[in-house]
Design a protein around this nucleic acid. Structure first.
Length: 202
DNA sequence: GTTGCACTTGAATTACATCA
DNA sequence: GTGATGTAATTCAAGTGCAA
């Protein structure tokens, strides 16, 4: 019961606050100390319409002028010194706490926007990397096919040379050993030694 | 004790759907 | 087709708790 009365009192104060114009700094200075003494802070009661609902809406939202000035200041500096905050509050007819809250929320929005931008940048980099990976993979497949064909060809040539002369070491075996590796370097070694053998026998 | 930040709440606004 | 009504989604000021 006592608690109920306390809450009603708070709501009454809040309703009174709601009727004060944002630019009416004189009226605000009368109310502000009451607000400062009200501890702990209470959540606003849900307004279920009625004659004050529209007025409440007008009060709650900062005017375009106020927002413009705040934006201008935010453009210069993302954090406010307490002196500047007070000056701004006075200039706009708002509670310094409202200025602080606005800057806090604005910083949060700015941070979110930055994160979104960063995300979309990383996303496009990622897409590029995926594309490049696909390209490289298909290149690897093509090279493997080429290597396989070359391997077969060398094998056939080696067999032919082995058939012609049984004196030297087996060329085909040398080639096989050289082809234990997978790619170009190995292929070059094999090809070079093959040419050397050919020169010997020519 | 103060301030900033992340998270949350509640009121207002907007966008859209449904119905008479 | 249109205005009234309901409602989900979004926006924004403010509350809360915690850390520095």
């Amino acid at each position: 019961m006592e608690r109920k009365e306390e809450e009603d009192q708070m709501n009454k104060v809040e309703d009174e606050m709601a009727l004060i114009s944002p630019f009416n700094s004189g009226a605000f200075s009368q109310i502000a100390p009451q607000q400062a003494e009200a501890k702990p802070r209470r959540r606003r009661k849900r307004n279920k319409g009625g004659e004050n609902s529209l007025l409440g809406a007008k009060k709650r939202k900062l005017t375009q002028e106020q927002v413009d000035v705040l934006e201008l200041n935010f453009g210069n500096e993302h954090k406010l010194e307490s002196e500047k905050k007070d000056r701004l509050a006075c200039e706009l007819g708002l509670d310094p706490r409202q200025i602080a809250v606005w800057f806090q929320n604005r910083r949060a929005r700015w941070k979110n926007k930055k994160l979104e931008e960063e995300f979309s940048k990383l996303n496009s980099v990622h897409d590029g990397v995926v594309l490049e990976k696909c390209r490289l993979e298909s290149e690897v497949i093509k090279l493997k096919e080429k290597l396989c064909e070359a391997q077969k060809e060398i094998q056939q040539l080696g067999e032919r040379v082995d058939g012609l002369s049984s004196n030297g070491p087996s060329l085909s075996m040398t080639m096989d050993a050289a082809f234990l590796g997978e790619f170009g370097d190995v292929f070059c070694i094999a090809e070079n030694s093959y040419m050397e053998w050919m020169n010997l026998f020519m």
